[in-house]
């Protein structure tokens, strides 16, 4: 890992093991110079722990299930690190994109260009000034 390298945690919110999309995104982010940590299929509490322990600058949620599960994960992350940016990709119908958008989470459904995802990662990891709340 290079000093000053931005750190991104990628996780799957559902117990659905399809990994093709996540793999391509992880590869593009690594190519763009990010340090990518693969969290795998971990629960909300485990995602929070990984985000804190790994001191990441951004969390990417790979969605393969219900929006309510994703909302809960977002809530848990926000409680621990309110300023930590989150973005999401995967199986996200327009209504799910709208809902997550309302929660301040950018969404990249299938067909999104890798360029747009990498740009978002750069932008979201740039400003990260306010101090985070201590984990509970």
């Amino acid at each position: 890992m290079t000093a000053g390298q931005r750190r991104i945690l990628l996780v799957k919110t559902a117990l659905d093991g399809h990994w093709r999309g996540l793999s391509v995104v992880a590869h593009a982010l690594r190519d763009a110079g990010f340090h990518v940590i693969m969290g795998g299929m971990i629960s909300g509490a485990e995602i929070v722990r990984a985000a804190v322990d790994e001191d990441v600058d951004l969390v990417g949620l790979n969605v393969g299930g219900h929006t309510l599960v994703v909302e809960r994960v977002i809530g848990e992350l926000r409680a621990a690190r309110p300023q930590l940016p989150i973005f999401a990709g995967g199986v996200l119908p327009p209504s799910a994109c709208r809902r997550l958008g309302e929660l301040g989470v950018e969404t990249y459904p299938p067909g999104s260009s890798l360029e747009a995802i990498v740009d978002a990662a750069r932008r979201l990891t740039q400003v990260h000034a306010e101090p985070d709340a201590a984990p509970p």
Binding site: A14, L15, D16, M41, S43, G65, L68, V69
Partner: peptide, 8 residues
Amino acid sequence: DVVARRED
């Protein structure tokens, strides 16, 4: 592991 994602 399922309870954590029960809506799925």
